[in-house]
């Protein structure tokens, strides 16, 4: 295991009460995998990452990172890892090339080696167009690409990326995914945080969903989606939501019912987790019709990671963005 944490906790002491940002996280990341950390704003993703990369002292718990004890051997951990912060860490008055060379030097490369490595990285991340301009003149996406490129200069065995694709256009995002996959091919494990479900789904070998500082579930994207075996039927009912729930909840073809808040027009969305969608839809229609509940909409869909999140936390990841 490249990362193994036990009960990792962080409580920030603020003037107005403490903030329990991370409340006992146990996770493990294997060599050479892309591990996703998915969660809404304020879930504790950045805090966890900062602890694992030695920037922040945990309040409790322990962890081994890249073969070293996080608390006892932070210097050894630093040598093995790369870290790209959520808001980057470049200085506006220097160029990308200078930053890349400096980064190599920080990781104890010689001058020539650092320069050669900078050229490689500039090529890999397609920075050559602006590599010799001052960083303060870059667009947000260009700067983000440089941030991630900086984390790869010393070819770490483990790379932490805190929301690497935020602010990138679709093309740059796809390109970044390719770069991250290439890192994995070279044997680098990548620990990536994201709010993007499609990103977690497409990129990650395994992922953990974190909410309010706790891991709610963990597994491969396929395993997670399989937790919601079967299908989901979304039914919009006008008024009478409680009646509909009372009616459907005991039905043997329905596993679970979740209810949203009614929208301004008085329509309540019921989320029915069912074994077999196509068989359930006519049953649901018939049952509600018999009870004279007005159906305003009906939709059948296959579970996505958003549904996993919703099922676990009762909230949608998309809405919280």
């Amino acid at each position: 295991m490249l990362i193994e944490t036990k009960g990792l906790r962080k409580t920030f002491r603020a003037r107005k009460g403490n903030v329990e940002a991370v409340r006992g996280v146990d996770l493990s990341v294997k060599e050479g995998e892309i591990f996703g950390f998915l969660g809404p704003n304020g879930a504790g993703k950045t805090t966890t990452l900062r602890m694992l990369s030695t920037l922040l002292e945990p309040t409790g718990g322990s962890a081994r990172v890249a073969g070293a004890d996080l608390l006892k051997e932070p210097a050894q951990v630093r040598r093995q890892i790369g870290y790209v912060g959520q808001s980057g860490g470049t200085w506006g008055e220097v160029t990308a090339r200078e930053e890349l060379v400096m980064q190599g030097r920080l990781y104890e490369m010689g001058k020539t080696a650092a320069r050669e490595r900078a050229v490689e990285v500039i090529e890999a991340f397609e920075l050559s167009e602006f590599a010799d301009r001052k960083v303060k003149t870059y667009s947000g996406g260009q700067r983000r690409r440089l941030d991630v490129a900086l984390g790869t200069v010393h070819q770490p065995s483990l790379l932490f990326l805190d929301e690497p694709t935020t602010g990138l256009d679709p093309q740059a995002r796809a390109h970044m995914w390719d770069e991250i996959k290439k890192l994995r091919e070279r044997g680098t494990a990548v620990f990536i945080t994201t709010h993007y479900l499609d990103e977690a789904d497409a990129l990650c070998d395994r992922l953990a969903i974190i909410d309010h500082g706790e891991i709610v579930t963990e597994g491969t994207p396929i395993e997670l989606k399989r937790q919601i075996a079967g299908d989901i039927v979304l039914v919009g009912v006008n008024g009478a939501a409680a009646k509909a729930v009372a009616l459907l909840e005991p039905a043997e073809y329905v596993r679970e019912v979740q209810t949203d808040e009614p929208d301004p027009t008085g329509v309540t969305l019921l989320r029915l987790y069912v074994e077999n969608g196509s068989a359930a839809v006519p049953e649901i229609l018939r049952a509600l019709d018999r009870a004279e509940v007005t159906i305003s909409s009906m939709e059948l869909h296959r579970p996505s990671l958003d549904d996993v999140f919703l099922r676990q936390t009762g909230r949608s990841l998309r809405e919280s963005d």
């Binding site: 890892i81 860490g89 920080l106």
Partner: peptide
């Protein structure tokens, strides 16, 4: 200013 830009943090995760 360097702390705010994250430069110091970037340096602090390296072995320097």
């Amino acid at each position: 200013a360097e702390i705010r830009e994250g430069v110091i943090e970037r340096f602090r995760v390296t072995p320097i």
